[in-house]
Simulated assay, not measured.
Amino acid sequence: MAEVLQVRRYGRLPGAAAHHGQILIRESDDPSHIVTTTPAKLAAFIEAVKAGEFDHLVP
């Protein structure tokens, strides 16, 4: 049987949970799809977004 996690806010992410050193982020369009990452990788991604590294992808 799959373990049921209580999904809670992780920082500013409303559909995320911390579990065994991983961050689980629920896809808002398809809640059955879960993206898994580490706190360090998520922090690096957020910093890259803040620094504008993905601005060229937005029209």
Rank of each mutant, 00 (worst) to 15 (best):
E47T: 14
F54Y: 14
L42F: 08
E3S: 08
F54V: 07
V35Q: 09
V4W: 01
Y10D: 04
F45P: 08
A40N: 11
L5D: 00
P39Y: 09
P31C: 10
K41N: 15
V58P: 10
L5Y: 00
I25W: 07
V4C: 02
A17R: 07
R8D: 03
E27D: 15
S28D: 15
A17V: 14
I34F: 07
V35E: 09
G11C: 01
E27I: 09
G21M: 03
F54P: 06
F54E: 02
L13G: 06
Y10F: 07
E27S: 14
V7L: 00
V4T: 05
H56L: 07
T36S: 12
E53Y: 04
A16P: 04
G52F: 01
P14K: 09
E3W: 01
I46W: 14
F45T: 13
G15E: 13
Q6W: 00
F45H: 12
L24V: 05
I46R: 15
L57G: 01
H19C: 10
V49K: 11
A16R: 05
I25Q: 02
M1C: 01
F45G: 10
R26I: 13
Q22S: 12
E3P: 00
V4I: 02
D30E: 14
K41G: 13
P59M: 03
T37N: 08
V7S: 00
L57Y: 07
Q6I: 01
V49R: 12
E3T: 09
Y10N: 02
H20Y: 12
K50L: 11
I34L: 12
A51L: 07
P31Q: 10
I34G: 04
L57R: 05
D30H: 14
V58D: 14
S32V: 13
P31G: 11
A17K: 06
A18N: 11
A43N: 13
T36Y: 05
L5P: 00
A40T: 14
L5C: 00
A44E: 15
H20T: 07
Q6R: 00
G15T: 12
E27R: 15
G52E: 00
A2V: 01
T37S: 10
A51K: 08
K41W: 10
R8T: 05
H33A: 14
M1W: 03
T38K: 02
I34T: 11
S32Y: 08
A40F: 05
V58F: 09
E53D: 12
H19F: 09
V4A: 02
H56E: 10
R12W: 08
L57C: 03
L13K: 02
H19T: 06
